[in-house]
Design a protein around this nucleic acid. Structure first.
Lengths: 372, 372
DNA sequence: TTGAAAGCGCTAACAC
DNA sequence: GTGTTAGCGCTTTCAA
């Protein structure tokens, strides 16, 4: 698929003579010829970084207009001029929490004169890799990945390699909410206190007298889920409550999963073996709430409910959802800040691992319960 | 800022000798030297499109590993190999409706083997232009813009030019939910029946006996708002109801704007001059509902409420929000489909304008009212 | 099976 | 002020 052959094919397939539609687009050379000057002069006019006679400039600009000339970034980049970009990769653009982080990335990147490119992978690792590859090849300033993963040998090996290859390309890998890869891997990590948040909110439930708390979790292998579940267990332990495995469920981080799982539980037995529900994300909590609502169960009267993430939706639910606030936007901003500061020599490699705090936001979905 | 000078500066600023950190990254030439072959051979190994002796291949791959070599897309693109991408531009990644469209774009682009790049502009036209420029220069297959605009001469002139320059660069401009630019402009337009949806839902309110409907709109100059307001007026007209200008409000498309405006109205007078609220987006409706809730106003008992967009949130509100469904995801998919089909010669220019339908989704936020 | 060489489109020293 | 020229890093003929 060489340049030449490709262009010929395009021409052969062409339907019209409209320049640009099929024929090759105008180059700086074409403009030069039309304006009766050299390519260098055109380049100067375009870059506007060098004195050019007004009349010449006029002619060049006219030619540019007439030919509908568009510079080729690739050629320009090759010649040394960079358009700095920051890339952000998430699973799903529709997910409310990660887009909050995307927003933070975007703002900070912009504040520092970079363009921000976002890519959604639908959780497909191949796609993630393809995008990282593209960004690496385009020499993006930083590539920021967000979203829990399955933390195994394969993960570490794979991302360690990615970190190195990005580094070799003059870019930087940033992991948001993912486990660090090791001390010698050139990657920036921005985590948040996942376990601590889960601990705190479980404690909140326990302090309100709840002892049997249904846990609506994500996939068992998912690092985010593991950390949250760990916090839940630690809190139980601190209160001397024996954990009941039958109260732990694993599923997806979707509204629907929360809905279905809650419905199934509600249908199961007359005497409910739990007085509160800890949904691992607000989305799951929203689904659970709908199921509770449909089942005629009062919240927090009969059952208390808490979520995690503190997305905007939490305040729209009725009752308003008590949840754990995660500083997603700040994570995004921090990710960009750390990576760029490092590149600009304003930060040291040792400071490339940050853990942001989380905290409980008490709203209306938790009620007091006399334990026993 | 030439390549040479830049590199020297980078070296000067360097802290370590780690290759890649500051020094220039390895090129195909470096790999060739290390492997004791020519650059052409390395290229062949990498592209894997040509027979190469197994042993040579081994040596090359090893050298690639050792040097952490990463091809330079720019050079590659310049030499004729394209990574096809589709670009999507929206105002805010956090906005629920447009990200639905982004999802559609992403899926369809992916189905057709393209990578999808998303850019959020925070409503900044300059940023939008910068991104479009970048994508044009990178020769993206299509550049898709979504979000209402101020429809004036400047808009038309500006985007007509963009359409032409994208076309000249072999790309294609797609406008989602924005007014067409004219018959001779090379742009694809995917609209939805904005006015029709507003008409239908207003009719729904009117049919339920509501005559005084508070309208919580967006900016007056915004095309989306204009169309929705037009639908509202047409419905009133069809029912022989005199529109009351004091019931029309303009503001922003945010939760908070809906909240504040509703609160102000509620505070204003004891005798409320309206029995229903038409919020121009579900987001605004969510805010209005909170205000109503706080004011102790029963919905739909005392006041009915409808929104527009049918985002997921609509089903989470209590009462569940009656609203207008807009096929955002389909818009995204359609945008990609039309643009790529055209490029592939599987569609004609005449079919590059599509209007998708909208419809009312009846849930629980509208009550009957005895008119008078 | 491999290498040499030309060229993709642009930029920036260096001459004039 | 403007043109000439030498690359940037890669791919792909063409020749060996």
């Amino acid at each position: 698929m060489g340049a030449q052959r490709r262009k010929q094919e395009e021409n052969a397939a062409g339907q019209g003579t409209d320049p640009g539609e099929n024929g090759r687009s105008a180059t700086i050379r074409d403009v030069a010829v039309r304006a009766g000057v050299s390519a260098a002069t055109v380049s100067r006019v375009l870059a506007d970084n060098y004195p050019v006679a007004p009349k010449t400039r006029q002619r060049v600009l006219r030619a540019v207009q007439e030919l509908n000339f568009v510079v080729n970034t690739h050629a320009r980049a090759l010649a040394g001029v960079r358009t700095e970009t920051v890339a952000f990769v998430l699973h799903d653009v529709r997910g409310p929490s990660f887009t909050e982080a995307a927003y933070g990335v975007e703002r900070e990147a912009n504040r520092r004169g970079r363009l921000c490119l976002i890519c959604s992978t639908e959780g497909d690792q191949e796609r993630e890799l393809a995008f990282v590859k593209l960004m690496r090849e385009q020499r993006a300033s930083a590539v920021i990945l967000i979203g829990g993963v399955r933390d195994d040998e394969q993960y570490r090996a794979r991302y360690t390699e990615i970190a190195h290859s990005l580094h070799a390309a003059g870019s930087r890998l940033v992991l948001c909410g993912r486990p660090p890869l090791g001390p010698d891997v050139p990657a920036t990590v921005v985590e948040y206190d996942n376990e601590g948040g889960a601990y705190a909110i479980t404690t909140h439930l326990l302090a309100n007298g709840h002892r049997r708390i249904l846990y609506l979790g994500g996939a068992l292998t998912h690092t985010t889920s593991q950390a949250r579940l760990a916090g839940y267990h630690r809190a139980l332990d601190d209160f001397g409550v024996e954990p009941d495995p039958s109260l732990i469920e694993h599923g997806e981080f979707t509204r629907n999963s929360g809905y279905e799982r809650t419905r199934a539980r509600l249908a199961k037995s007359g005497a409910r073996p739990f007085t509160a529900i800890f949904a691992e994300t607000d989305m799951v909590a929203a689904g659970a709430l709908t199921a509770l609502d449909e089942g005629g169960v009062a919240v927090p009267g009969e059952i208390s409910l808490v979520g995690y993430d503190d997305i905007e939706l939490a305040g729209d639910l009725r009752p308003r959802l008590t949840t754990v606030h995660v500083p997603y936007e700040e994570m995004g901003r921090t990710a960009v800040r750390l990576a760029l500061d490092l590149k600009e020599g304003r930060s040291r490699a040792a400071d490339q691992h940050v853990v942001l705090g989380t905290h409980v936001v008490v709203r209306q979905s938790v009620g007091r319960r006399r334990p026993g």
